[in-house]
Every structure is written in structure tokens, then in C-alpha cells.
């Protein structure tokens, strides 16, 4: 049962991911990305990582996709016409496939050496303890990173406005 679900979810994720890079319409790309993200969330469920699955759906499936769609709505699409006309896509495809082959080969070939745990659910309580006790330091640093990103977004956004407001007719 788990295996069948895995193939369904994995296939869905792969097809959607291919859709992201092959589609010419950037809005379709964003929607394909949503499907791929949800597929990954499903894979997390199969691994008994319910919390991760939830976060994957909320953050990536929800917030990030919505931000992407908003960004597309608020910028004029003509600005991006160049982005879809890349003539060097064969090279990118070859390199991506080679890298995929290498990593997939490594993962399959060395799968015996991976640390294997008995998969079982981890309670949210344990996660919280881990995050706020053992990993408190990186967690605190992350909060400053977010602050810096916030400052950056405001300052750079505002400086465009002060110079005559060409860019914000939205």
C-alpha cells in the first residue's frame, strides 16, 4: 500500500516538476510548482514526518506560491518576455540531466550506507524541545536573518519610490 502511494506521489511530483521547467507560461509554472510541493508533502507523510508535511503545505504550498502569484500580478509581464526566450536551454538540460544522473546514481548505489532509522512519528513536543533547546542558537540567528531581509525589502522598495515612482504603478 505504502509503495503504491509512493509511486503515485513520486510520479505526480516528477511530472509537475517537469511542467515547471518546460511550460512557457509563468503562471502555469507557479501552479505546477504548487502540485510538486504538495506531492513532496505527501512523501513526507509516508515517512511519518507529519509536522514537516504540514509545514511543507502551509509554507511552500500556501505562502510561497501565493507570494509568487502576487509578484507576477504586480509586475508587468512584458518585463519578463526575455526570460522565456533562452536559447541555451539544450546546455542547461544536458547539465541538469548529468547532475541528476550523478546524484541519483550516488543515492541508489550507496543506499546501503545510509543511516537507517526505524521510521516512527516524532511528537511535536520533541520537535519543539529540539528547536528551542538544542538548536536555540541557529534559531536565534535565523530571526536576525529575517530581520535583515525585512529591512532590505523595505529600504530597497522605498528607495525606488523616492526616485520618481516609475516602478510602482502596479
Amino acid at each position: 500500500m505504502g509503495l503504491i502511494l509512493f509511486y503515485i506521489l513520486g510520479g505526480l511530483t516528477l511530472v509537475a516538476a517537469l511542467g515547471v521547467v518546460t511550460t512557457r507560461n509563468i503562471v502555469y509554472g507557479a501552479l505546477f510548482l504548487l502540485v510538486a510541493m504538495s506531492g513532496v508533502a505527501g512523501l513526507f507523510v509516508l515517512l511519518f514526518a507529519e509536522f514537516l508535511a504540514l509545514v511543507q503545505l502551509l509554507i511552500y504550498g500556501g505562502a510561497i506560491i501565493i507570494v509568487i502569484l502576487f509578484a507576477l500580478m504586480l509586475t508587468r509581464t512584458t518585463d519578463f518576455s526575455v526570460a522565456t526566450e533562452h536559447r541555451r536551454w539544450p546546455m542547461a538540460a544536458v547539465i541538469s540531466l548529468a547532475l541528476f544522473g550523478l546524484l541519483a546514481g550516488a543515492a541508489i548505489g550507496d543506499s546501503g550506507d545510509y543511516n537507517t532509522y526505524q521510521r516512527s512519528g516524532i511528537s511535536i513536543e520533541e520537535l519543539g524541545k529540539g528547536l528551542f533547546e538544542n538548536w536555540a542558537v541557529p534559531f536565534e540567528i535565523a530571526s536576525i536573518v529575517l530581520l535583515v531581509a525585512l529591512i532590505g525589502a523595505i529600504v530597497i522598495g522605498r528607495s525606488g519610490e523616492e526616485e520618481g515612482g516609475e516602478g510602482d504603478q502596479g
Binding site: W135, V137, P138, I141, A142, I144, V145, V148, A149, I151, G152, V155, I156, S159, E163
Partner: peptide
Amino acid sequence: LLTAFISIELLSFSLYVLVGLSRG
């Protein structure tokens, strides 16, 4: 490695913003 990674991000994010700050 994770602490190192998030520290790199703190440095990099600050630099990304600083590079883009000047009146362009």
C-alpha cells in the same frame, strides 16, 4: 554545519541589501 549555514546567510543577506542600497 547548520549553524555555519545560517551564519553565512546572515552575512550574505546583509551584503545583498547593502550592494543594492546606493541610489541606483
